[in-house]
Computed example of a mutant assay.
Amino acid sequence: MPVGKAPEDGEEESRLLLRFAAPRDPALIAKWISYQVINTERQDWRRGAEAALRYRQREGDLDVPYEHVEAVGAFPLGRWLSDQRRTFRAGTMTGERAAELEELGIVWDTADAGFATNLGAARAYYELHGTLAAPRGAAILDVAIGQWLTNVRRPGGLGKDPGRARRRAAALAAIDPDWNPGTLGWTVDWQRHYAYLTQLLASGARLTAIVPGVTRHGDDIGRWLATQQRDWDRLNAEQQRRLATLGVTKAPRARKTAAKTAAASGPRTGGEAFQKGLEALQQYIAREGRLPGRAVVEVLPDGTEHRTGIWISNQKARRDKLDQAQRAALAELGVDWAAG
């Protein structure tokens, strides 16, 4: 009857090698050492594969953090999978082992897997917004898509490998050809506003109706449009071409002679301040179809803000000081107290 535990697989052969090997026989000693190394490596592989199977059954995937250690046997599964990926890339992994890991769902290239996940989120964002010019804080499908797009637009953001970078850029361009507007000479903000203006016009909006205060997805497209018209000469040729295709033109420059003529006409303008208030009131009524409340602040085409609601109240308070032309201009816009 044997005493003690039974020898494990390979132990008996090792004992025999040692028993019958001459003490100074280097060939047999080397064979024994080699056998021990191979046997240890085989046991390590089996432990790793079993730990990977347990993780997959529990978590549903093999997206294992590098520092993860399986509780059973305290096995460093994350590090072990990283070692297997390195062996696979070096071409020294057997086909049988590669097939076993693939059956478990190993991700050979974790960088590409992460890119694919974010690319899916980018596709979802484009379907909702019609552009990949997302603001930095934008998020969708639990992905901080705005920050990710900012990162991949940076030099080297698509990876150090040129081939991989080209493939990734092509994948983004397949979603939105203008995904990286910096290469075209303008900012992400400009691209987003331009895309939203295009969408508003495509939905049937008239260009003249897109005034400050008209928004899409929270961006004031009317104010942006007025700025483009005012700063037309600062745009590059391609920006001007794209806007011109939508019917946008440069804002006419105010002529001094016209201002002098307006001033000479006397009561009709009632001074620059009154004329500015009248312009803001006209703009608000054209957009909203009603008179503004006291808290309304209107943004004029030149980008300045006008407290139109308070201005109307002030005109009412000084009604007796308004001349006939001023009251007529207000009455024409539906200000009932100015009539008569």
Rank of each mutant, 00 (worst) to 15 (best):
L184N: 08
R234K: 15
D44V: 00
H193I: 03
E332C: 04
L141V: 08
D9K: 14
L184V: 05
A286G: 13
I106T: 02
L77N: 08
Y125C: 05
R166Q: 07
G334R: 12
I221H: 07
E298Q: 15
G95W: 11
A144Q: 15
H193S: 10
L128S: 10
I33K: 15
F20D: 07
W179M: 06
T183H: 03
L246K: 09
F75T: 09
A195E: 00
F88I: 01
A174H: 07
T215R: 12
L207T: 02
V143Y: 06
R54A: 12
D142P: 10
K250P: 02
L62Q: 05
D320W: 09
A244N: 13
L128H: 13
R307G: 01
L300H: 04
L201T: 03
I29N: 05
R327P: 00
R167Q: 12
R268T: 10
W108Q: 04
A74E: 13
E12D: 08
K31R: 15
E103G: 12
D161Q: 09
R153T: 14
A169M: 00
G289M: 01
A329H: 11
Q282P: 00
Q326M: 11
P177T: 04
R54Y: 08
H68W: 13
Y126Q: 08
P292M: 07
A90R: 15
A325N: 10
G277P: 06
Y125I: 02
P76I: 12
E272S: 07
V143S: 12
K160W: 09
K276R: 15
A209S: 13
W232K: 10
P181F: 12
H129W: 07
A121F: 14
P162C: 05
A174E: 11
D231R: 14
L101M: 11
R216A: 09
A98T: 06
Q324K: 13
P135F: 11
G222E: 08
A295R: 13
D220I: 09
G293F: 10
V3I: 09
V143N: 05
A251N: 04
K276C: 02
P181G: 06
A30C: 03
A90W: 06
R294I: 13
E272N: 00
L172E: 03
E70A: 08
Q84L: 01
V214G: 00
Q199C: 02
A22F: 00
A202H: 00
R164T: 13
K276F: 00
L62N: 07
L128A: 15
P162G: 04
D178H: 08
R168N: 04
G10Q: 08
W32T: 11
I285C: 02
R168Y: 09
E70D: 12
L28A: 14
A30I: 02
E8A: 11
A6R: 15
S265V: 01
G334Q: 05
A325E: 12
W186H: 07
V72C: 04
Y126A: 12
R307Y: 00
R24V: 05
D25G: 05
A144H: 15
E96W: 00
P2V: 03
A258K: 07
A328Q: 13
L104D: 10
W186A: 01
A174N: 07
R47W: 02
W80E: 04
H217R: 10
R154M: 14
G309W: 09
D61K: 10
L278M: 05
R97N: 11
S14I: 03
D189G: 07
Q240W: 00
L53P: 01
A144I: 02
P181R: 08
R15Y: 06
G120N: 13
E100D: 02
L243V: 10
H193D: 09
G218P: 03
